[in-house]
C-alpha cells in the first residue's frame, strides 16, 4: 500500500498489515527521537490543524508530533474564529487551507466530515475525530501502547469498561483488536452495553467475547483494562445519563485481586472512573498512553507526507 498521499479517515480502511506497519514505524521514530531529541524528516513541510471542535490532547499531540519531525504547524482550534462563522462550506475551507499546507488534520462535530474533506483535498487528510464516528489515530496509539507494554497484542485478555454503547473509542478499538488473537471482556452497566451488531461482528471474526456487569469479578482475568468515561454529551436523554452516572470506579480495592502485570488504560480526560490513588500503582498506563500519541502521529504524518523511508 502506497502511504504517500494516503488519507487516514477510519479504522475500517486499515488492514492488519497497515496497522502493524504504522506501529513499527512509530517504534522506530520513538527510538530515534530518544537518541537525537529532534528529527528533521518533515523540514519545510506544513501541517494545518483544523479543529472545528475543541480538543486539548489530540491537537497538541499532533502539533508536537509535527514539530518533533522538524515541520511547522498552522491552524485554528475553534470554528468561531474562522470563515465557517460567515457561512463558508467545509469543502471551500478545505480547498483554501490546502493551498497553505502539505497535510491536514481535522476534527469536526459532524460525522463524515473528515471523509468529505479527504475527497475534496489533493493533500493527505488525517481524521482527528468526526462527531461520534471515528478517531483512528486514538485507536492506533492504543494498540501501540499495548504493544509497547507487552511486546505483543496476540494472546492478551483485554477488558473494555464503561460506556460501551456510545463510546466511539471502544468501538474502533474493538474493531481493530479483532485483527488479533485476543479475548475481550465487555464490562458495562446493563444500559451501556456494546451494541449488538458490534458484538456479533466481533464474534464472526473469531474473537472470544464475554459480556458482564461485574467489574471486580472480571479484573483478575485481565491483562489490560481499558476504562472509558461516561460522556454526558452523547446521551440523548438526561434521565438515562443520571441512571448510570458514577456506576463504576476503578480503585485499589477493585484491583486487589488483579494480576501484577495488569495495565490500566484510559483515553482521558477522566472524571471519576479511575481514582487518583491508582496513578501511583504499576498498573497505571494512561499517561504513558498519552505519550504514545506523539510517535504514532509522527509516523502517520511522516508516512502520508512521504518523507520517511519505509
Amino acid at each position: 500500500m502506497e502511504w504517500k498521499g494516503r488519507d487516514v479517515i477510519s479504522v475500517r480502511d486499515f488492514s492488519k498489515e497497515d496497522i502493524e506497519f504504522v506501529l513499527k514505524i512509530a517504534e522506530r521514530l520513538e527510538e530515534r527521537l530518544n537518541k537525537k531529541g529532534h528529527l528533521e524528516y518533515a523540514r519545510g513541510k506544513i501541517l494545518a490543524t483544523l479543529f472545528f471542535e475543541p480538543s486539548t490532547r489530540t491537537r497538541l499531540s499532533f502539533e508536537s508530533a509535527m514539530h518533533r519531525l522538524g515541520g511547522s504547524v498552522i491552524g485554528f482550534s475553534s470554528a468561531a474564529s474562522t470563515s465557517v462563522k460567515k457561512g463558508e462550506s467545509l469543502a471551500d475551507t478545505i480547498k483554501t487551507v490546502e493551498q497553505y499546507s502539505d497535510v491536514i488534520v481535522i476534527r469536526h462535530p459532524m460525522e463524515g466530515a473528515a471523509r468529505l474533506a479527504a475527497e475534496v483535498a489533493e493533500i493527505p487528510v488525517i481524521n482527528a475525530g468526526d462527531g461520534s464516528n471515528q478517531h483512528p489515530t486514538q485507536t492506533l496509539l492504543d494498540l501501540y501502547t499495548i504493544k509497547r507494554a507487552f511486546g505483543r497484542i496476540d494472546g492478551l485478555r483485554i477488558g473494555l469498561l464503561g460506556d460501551l454503547k456510545y463510546g466511539r473509542t471502544v468501538h474502533s478499538l474493538a474493531e481493530a483488536l479483532a485483527f488479533y488473537d485476543v479475548e475481550l471482556y465487555l464490562i458495562s452497566p446493563e444500559l451501556l452495553r456494546m451494541p449488538k451488531h458490534i458484538v456479533e461482528e466481533l464474534r464472526e471474526k473469531g474473537v472470544k467475547v464475554h459480556e458482564t456487569t461485574d467489574l471486580e469479578g472480571t479484573v483478575p482475568e485481565l491483562d489490560v483494562l481499558y476504562v472509558t468515561r461516561i460522556q454526558r454529551e452523547r446521551f440523548p436523554d438526561e434521565q438515562e445519563y443520571l441512571k448510570v452516572k458514577g456506576s463504576y470506579q476503578v480503585n485499589c480495592a477493585v484491583l486487589k485481586n488483579a494480576k501484577e502485570s495488569l495495565k490500566i488504560m484510559h483515553p482521558l480526560p477522566r472524571v471519576d472512573e479511575i481514582h487518583p490513588e491508582v496513578d501511583r500503582t504499576p498498573h497505571a498506563l494512561y499517561f504513558r498512553q498519552v505519550f504514545s500519541g506523539v510517535p504514532v502521529r509522527m509516523a502517520l504524518l511522516g508516512l502520508t507526507l512521504g518523507v520517511l523511508e519505509g
Binding site: S89, H108, M110, G112, R115, L116, Q134
Partner: peptide, 27 residues
C-alpha cells in the same frame, strides 16, 4: 455531513437479506 454539505450521498450495501446499508460518510 451529507445532510449539511453539497455532496452526493453514497451507501454501501452491507446485506441484501435483510436489507442493510452503510453510509460512506458517517458509517
Amino acid at each position: 455531513v451529507s445532510n449539511h454539505e453539497y455532496v452526493t450521498s453514497k451507501f454501501y450495501v452491507v446485506s441484501r437479506e435483510p436489507l442493510k446499508v452503510r453510509c460512506h460518510y458517517c458509517e
